[in-house]
Amino acid sequence: MMYFSQGVIGSLKSKDCRNWAAIFCVFIALFISLPAQASSQIEAANRLINTMVRDVESYLLADSGDISKRTENITKLLDTHFDIAGIARFSAGPYWRAANEKERLTYTQSMRKALIGTIARNFDQLVGLRFTIIDSQAKGSRMVLVRGTFRDKAGKRPPVSVGWRVVTPHPGPAKVLDVEIENISMLITQKQENIAIIRKNGGRFSALIEAMRQRQQTQ
C-alpha cells in the first residue's frame, strides 16, 4: 500500500513537474516573442512614417501650386500609406454594420475624395516643417502609436506634437489609420461628426452619403 501510494505520488510529482516545465517553457517563449513582435511592429510603423515623411517632403519640393498635380501626388500618398478601408470602417462608427455593400463602397469613395481634398487644401502648411519621431508604442498586437513633433525649420511657428496611429497587420504592410494633433484625433472627430449626422436623420446611413455629396458639390 505504501509502495503504491509512493508510486502514485511519485508519478504525480513527475507529471506535475513535466506540466510545470511545459508551462514555464510556454511563458518563456511568450515573453521572448512578445517584445520581439512588438519591436518588429514598432520598426514597421517607424519605417512607414519615415518613408511617408520623405515622400511628403519630395512632393512639397516639387509642388508648383498646380492643383491637379498636387491632387495626383496626394492621391498616390494616400493610397500607398493610408488604410483607406480601415478609415472608412472606423469613421462610420456602429452604423457601418447597418450599411449595405453599395452604401459602404459609395461612402468609402466619398470619404477618400474628401480626405484628398482636405489634405490638398492644407498641404501648404507643411512647407518648412521637419518631422522627428520622439517615441513609438505598441497598442495591442495590431497598432502602434508613433509620436513625434513637427518643427518649423525657421523657428517662426511653435512645434506641434503629432501622433500617427499605424495598423500593423500580420501579414501585410503597415498603414496609417489616424493622425492625432495635440491630443485631437482626426479620425475620432470625423466619426463623431458622422454619427451625429446619421442620428439626426433617424439612423439612415444614406443621409451621411447625401450630406457628403452635397458638401463636395459646394467645394
Binding site: 491630443n183 463623431q192 454619427i195 458638401r215
Partner: peptide
C-alpha cells in the same frame, strides 16, 4: 466652411482637447 456638421465637429474637438 468645410465640415458636414460644424456643431458636432466643434463638440468633438472640444471634448478631445479638454480630455487631453
Amino acid at each position: 466652411y468645410n465640415s458636414l456638421d460644424p456643431y458636432a465637429r466643434t463638440r468633438s474637438l472640444y471634448y478631445q482637447s479638454r480630455a487631453g
